[in-house]
Design a protein around this nucleic acid. Structure first.
Lengths: 203, 203, 203, 203
DNA sequence: AATGAATGAGTTTTCATTCAT
DNA sequence: CATGAATGAAAACTCATTCAT
């Protein structure tokens, strides 16, 4: 999950190309985006991309690593030095929503081409990161049960599974704009649903 | 949404090939699956598939149509002749979970290659179907609010967006078996989360 | 060193294409020959080759395996059931010269691109085969020394090193025709040089 | 065979770069070595090489010319003012072995990429040099026959062909060190093989 | 002297599809 | 129904070389 790679000297141009590629990946998925399209977007020939990267996959790699570093950072910070599971969960939701909006492309890549990436050893860190994310959720849900904050019959692992993907979703809405929701509205709606469900208080 | 197509004379062999293709699509996505892989699975050569189908897309088409027919049937039946939105929603959740487990491949295809399909006129029915599904959810949530069953501040469209993808999720768990959840457990957990959230009653 | 590979069903066409490729490899070396050239020679498009082979390397693999099977077969037969090292060596020289003339392309490939092939695990059998060949030579030379047939001060490993490459040479002369030597003349000249040197008897 | 070329102003840096390139050529062959690899070895960017050389081929040219100048010099010196063919041949063997060890890269280049170089007019001097080398051998072998030193039935041209490549071989052993042979041991073994063969005196 | 960026022509490979047999 | 062979268009990637700075 380290960010520095010896074969990848950072540069302005390079960073710009990654951003262009990320936008395309977000739009059409990683596999469906061709290097020619990336090059076209940059106004250069496809072969010229290989002056900066040694493969299309290494561009994807860089995008995904940065994303997971960011997300995991948020999870760790959320869990550090805080005892109330409810607060930790709220922090996780808010921080990862923010991280996701910063790395929209990475999310789309994972959603569309998870099978492709996770099958390669090069991307083994994806599975590792997912495990840490799951563990964090399960830990907090379990602690909440023990403290009596959450329903005692709640299956932490099951709830996590149900939740994880909801967390990813709001970000992809950026594309479908004009719907009129701010990120805050979405996150608040999500937290409300998570904690209280849709049933009216009295019922 | 019509089922009969002139280029598709139904037959045992044909149905079998579709099932084989569907399994592969479920595993790796529609685009990532090659006709050669489908043919290999059937023990024939790739060219021979074209005796049964006129294109790879027409295989996908058939799988997606059957799926949406099934799902929409469930939605319509759930809403027909029932007034209590809570009951309708529970029926929707149960029926679509069942439909999804019957059409696992279709779901993966939509999740992975939505952009690809929805951009083609041939697959226009996908958008139509999605709109009907959304409308059904929004209708029921709105009626629930008016009846005082659901929270008055609930944004029906937002909640639908949050929910839709959760509904798809449990299906993809078939692969990761051994986790020890039955479909019923998952649906119950999902309905409980939807109606009541994770907070303990007293809190 | 097995000849049968499940992913390579033998066929007339396939064998013909291998022969065409082998001729080109012999002429210009493996790396320097493009798949397009092979396809051109066959009168098809380069992509069509991939109907028969999954990579250029697998064509090379097939050519090299057949060659080494043939050569090693000769070495084993030469050493089997024969005690006189001088006879064994003569047999080895004759059989491998014959094998080489049957697999001229393989030889050129090894001479030109040995570094390329031997660095890949796929071609690990090349090193294994070379070791067996060396061991056979060293064994016979040592036995000849013990029997008093060969000079006692002869360094078997050194002589082998000096000899190995001479063995390969005569084959490549096929190209440079018109020189007027038959294979037999070459082999006889070689054996005479090996056993007796160039010095006149009396000197 | 002229050494001076207008596009080649000699300099320290330049000579160093040629040495680096030569090492890589020796390891992997001329064509298999990329300019980028040469530049990497020098710690500069590939484009910067073109400040010193106008093409990759001109690097190869320089390496090959120096080599052939050195080798031919040895051949001429060996034949000059000496009547005994046996002595001349011994001198040739010793001098060319020494030359080869000074120009290891050139040898690998010729062995691996002979077809490539010899097809270009720029490298016409390669064929010229080879002809002179062959003629020298044939002359000495023929004279030896007339003097009764060498076997009368010996085919000078054939023997030369058989011998030439043996001469190159020992050089490539530099890489596989630790085998425990000094250059002298190799040359002596070679001369002994050449003059007397491997057969024990009495046999 | 060297960088940093790019070219352009070529390479191997992929894959849905066609079609005579 | 299926084979066996091929197409054709596009994909990812390679690499010697150029050039403004």
């Amino acid at each position: 999950m380290t960010t520095t790679k010896k074969a990848a000297p950072p540069s302005e141009r390079r960073a710009h190309l990654i951003r262009l590629a990320a936008d395309l990946f977000a739009e059409k998925g990683f596999r469906a985006t061709t290097v020619r399209e990336i090059a076209d977007a940059a106004g250069i020939l496809s072969g010229s991309l290989y002056h900066h990267f040694d493969s299309k996959e290494s561009i994807g790699d860089e995008i995904l690593r940065e994303f997971l570093d960011d997300v995991l950072g948020g999870y760790r910070a959320a869990a550090a030095g805080e005892d109330d599971p409810r607060v930790v969960i709220e922090r996780i939701v808010r921080s990862s929503t923010a991280a996701l909006s910063r790395h929209r492309a990475a999310l789309t890549m994972l959603q569309n081409d998870w099978a492709y990436f996770s099958a390669q050893k090069r991307f083994a860190y994806l599975r590792t990161a997912m495990k840490e994310i799951e563990q964090t959720w399960v830990d907090q849900l379990e602690r909440g049960k023990q403290l009596g904050q959450f329903r005692a019959d709640l299956d932490a692992r099951l709830i996590y599974r149900l939740l994880r993907d909801i967390l990813w979703i709001p970000t992809s809405w950026k594309q479908a704009r004009g719907k009129g929701w701010s990120t805050d509205e979405i996150v608040d709606g999500l937290l409300r649903l998570l904690f209280d469900g849709i049933t009216a208080p009295g019922q």
